[in-house]
Computed example of a mutant assay.
Amino acid sequence: MDREEAKRIIEAILFVSDKPVSITTLRDVMKDIEPTDIRSYIEELNNEYNSSNRSFGIKEIAGGFQMLTDPVYGAWISSLYKRPPDRLTGPALETLAIIAYKQPLTRSDIEIIRGVNVDGVLHTLEERALIKTKGRVDAPGRPILYGTTNEFLQHFGLKSLEDLPKLKEFQESDLDFVKEQQKSTIVKLTVDSAERGENDRSEELENSD
C-alpha cells in the first residue's frame, strides 16, 4: 500500500475505536508496515488536521493512539449528549493522586497519609477501573498493594506515568512514618511470639515438676 492509503487506514481505525489503539495492533492489522512508519503517518495526519483547523486530533495516551476532540468544544458535546459530568469526588481524587505518585502502596499507607479511612474510596476507584491490585506485601497479613491502570492514563489523557506533573510538596519522606510503623508492627509481633514461647516453656517445666 502507498503512503496515503496507509494514512487513511490508520485514520479509519482510530476514528471507529472507542479506546487507544497500540502500534502493535495497528501493525497486526496493516501487516507489512514498520512501527516507525506508523508514527510518521500519525504525525502527518495531525499536521493535516492542524493546518485545516480541525476540531479533533490524534493523541498518544495509555500506551496507544486515540482520535479525540479538542477540549474547547467539550461544552457543546456535553449539551448534545446531556450526560451529567463524570467527576470524581475530592476524597477520591486525593486518594487517586496519592496512589498515582506513590504506587505501589497499601491501604494503610494511604490512610496514614490522608488521616482517614479509605475503604469506600478504594472500592469506588476499583469499580471505575482507575486502580487495581499490583501484588501483596511480604509482611504479616500480606496487605494488598494498589496501583493505577491504563484506564487511569486514558481518563486523564496521559501517555504514561512519566507525564504526571511534578509535585515538589509530595516527597518520599511522606512514607517514612509508614515504613517505621510497619517495622514496629513486625518487631512487636516477633517479641509477642517470643514471649508466648517462653511462657509456654515455663508452664511445661512447672507441669513436669
Rank of each mutant, 00 (worst) to 15 (best):
A139G: 11
E11T: 10
D18K: 14
K132Y: 09
V178M: 04
I33L: 15
P91Q: 03
Q182S: 12
L205I: 11
G74R: 02
F56V: 11
L26E: 07
L26T: 09
D86Q: 13
R39Q: 04
L122Y: 05
E48V: 12
A92P: 00
S173G: 11
L122R: 05
E48G: 14
N199K: 12
K159P: 03
L145G: 09
D138I: 14
K59H: 05
P85C: 00
G115R: 01
K59C: 06
Y101A: 04
S79V: 01
R142L: 04
A75H: 02
Y73H: 09
R114L: 15
T69I: 12
E43N: 10
S55R: 10
K179G: 08
G157C: 03
E169F: 12
A75M: 07
E169I: 07
V187A: 06
T190I: 01
S193V: 04
D37R: 15
N53L: 12
I110W: 01
M1P: 13
L164V: 02
I113L: 09
E4G: 10
G147V: 04
E94V: 06
E34S: 15
P143E: 01
V21N: 05
V16G: 10
E162C: 01
Y146W: 13
S55N: 14
Y101R: 02
N207H: 08
E180C: 13
R201Y: 12
T89F: 02
F170K: 06
A75P: 04
G57S: 08
R196V: 05
T36Q: 09
L189R: 00
V21T: 06
I131F: 00
G120R: 04
D86K: 01
L205S: 13
P84E: 02
D2G: 15
T95G: 07
P143A: 01
K59P: 05
K132S: 14
A97R: 03
R107V: 06
E43C: 15
Y49G: 14
G57Y: 11
E43V: 11
I99A: 10
E60P: 12
D18I: 06
E172G: 13
G115D: 00
R107M: 12
K166I: 07
S55Q: 10
D138W: 03
Q182L: 06
H123C: 09
E44K: 04
S78N: 10
P20Y: 02
K188S: 01
Q182F: 05
E48R: 08
A194S: 11
